[in-house]
Deep mutational scan, measured.
Amino acid sequence: DLSALRVEEVQNVINAMQKILECPICLELIKEPVSTKCDHIFCKFCMLKLLNQKKGPSQCPLCKNDITKRSLQESTRFSQLVEELLKIICAFQLDTGLEYANSYNFAKKENNSPEHLKDEVSIIQSMGYRNRAKRLLQSEPENPSLQETSLSVQLSNLGTVRTLRTKQRIQPQRTSVYIELGSDSSEDTVNKATYCSVGDQELLQITPQGTRDEISLDSAKKAACEFSETDVTNTEHHQPSNNDLNTTEKRAAERHPEKYQGSSVSNLHVEPCGTNTHASSLQHENSSLLLTKDRMNVEKAEF
């Protein structure tokens, strides 16, 4: 173990290094160091905050020279020094078990990766560091076993998940096959086929009936047209017969005018059967003409 005197000496050296690497504005270890034209180094955030307070150039807090945003430059070497100082402080805390008085939040800088452990060898070769390295080497064999167990647990979990997924996939297939086998029997399929065939026959029977009705309507229309044509021909046949009657009536009127007047009046009210309204109107006109002729003949006879 380190003596108290040596611990104090190391602590004083760390404090001196820390004062050199402090920012003059925030009085902390410089984060993202930036250098000016006057070779003074500050935190990048502190300098941008200072420049944004005034429009135009501002003055350096140490030498009062003008500073602009374009004049600022990043210093990589200074950032490396800060990183190495942080590593020294971490090693000091691990070796002594004491917390550094002016320690900052170094938890963000710590890294437990194997590459980081290899890099620590180049920091300080001390008894405390050696003991700590031995402890780490002793704890390393235990870690692979834990990793193997965790991997086995994960693989077993994956296997159970896969088996569950396969079961879920197989179950719908089985149910679907069961439904297909038990849903419709052979008799049901035959009945469905016969039902479809009967429906098709009914459709075939319905369509000819409609065509037959249309044919019957067409035949009825044709018969009505033929009947009207026969009526017209009958009226045409009746007209010459009426003319013959008129000639006979004229002759009778010349011989017996008194008797014919009474008979002509009675004939006005008689309509021949089986004739249309057109034929009756023609008869009325003929009878009126005959009456006028008879009157003329009677007057001539009187004179």
Rank of each mutant, 00 (worst) to 15 (best):
E120G: 14
D213H: 12
R295T: 01
M47I: 05
Y100H: 04
I67L: 09
S75I: 02
P208H: 06
P33R: 11
L86M: 08
Q93P: 12
L48V: 09
S183F: 02
K37N: 01
E32G: 06
Q205H: 05
Q209P: 04
K222N: 03
Q80E: 05
L289V: 04
H40Q: 11
I123L: 12
L158R: 04
N234T: 08
V265I: 09
L50R: 08
L2F: 10
V161E: 09
Q154K: 01
E302D: 06
K37Q: 00
L245M: 13
T163S: 10
Q59E: 00
E8A: 06
D244N: 03
E28V: 14
L245W: 00
L2I: 05
P114A: 00
S150C: 03
I67K: 11
S288G: 12
N15I: 11
S3T: 08
A133P: 02
S103I: 05
E254A: 02
R251S: 11
L204F: 09
T163N: 14
L164V: 06
G182V: 09
Q209H: 14
A193E: 15
V270A: 01
A279V: 08
D218E: 08
K87N: 05
A16G: 10
E229D: 02
C90F: 08
M17V: 05
R169L: 07
T211N: 02
N297T: 00
S288N: 06
S264Y: 03
C60W: 14
N15K: 10
K250M: 04
E84V: 15
D39Y: 08
N12I: 04
R295S: 04
G210R: 07
Q125H: 10
S145Y: 01
V265L: 08
S35F: 09
R77K: 13
I88L: 14
L48M: 03
T277S: 14
K64N: 13
A193S: 12
P172L: 04
V7I: 07
T68I: 03
L217M: 12
L81P: 14
V298I: 05
L85P: 13
A301P: 14
V265D: 15
M17T: 13
R6C: 05
Q171P: 13
F45S: 12
D119Y: 13
E84G: 07
S185F: 07
S266L: 01
L217V: 03
E285G: 02
P144A: 06
P272Q: 03
N131T: 15
K259R: 02
S280N: 10
L155I: 00
R169Q: 08
E271A: 14
P61S: 05
L86W: 02
T211I: 01
R130T: 01
G262V: 11
T149I: 02
S139C: 05
E299K: 10
V153D: 12
N267I: 01
F78L: 02
Q93R: 13
N15H: 09
I41K: 08
H238N: 11
P144R: 07
A301V: 04
P24S: 11
T76K: 11
L51P: 13
D66Y: 03
S156Y: 06
P144H: 03
A107E: 08
E140D: 11
M296L: 13
T233S: 03
F42C: 14
C43R: 15
T76A: 03
L164M: 11
V270L: 00
V7A: 13
E302G: 13
N131K: 08
S126N: 07
Y129F: 04
V232I: 09
F78S: 08
L94F: 08
Q93L: 12
A223V: 07
E99D: 10
K192N: 15
P208L: 00
E22G: 07
P141T: 07
Q138H: 06
K49N: 02
E148Q: 06
N234S: 04
E8V: 03
V10E: 15
H256N: 04
I30S: 11
R162K: 04
A252T: 03
T68S: 02
R174G: 14
I89V: 05
K118R: 14
I14V: 06
D188H: 02
Q239K: 06
G274S: 06
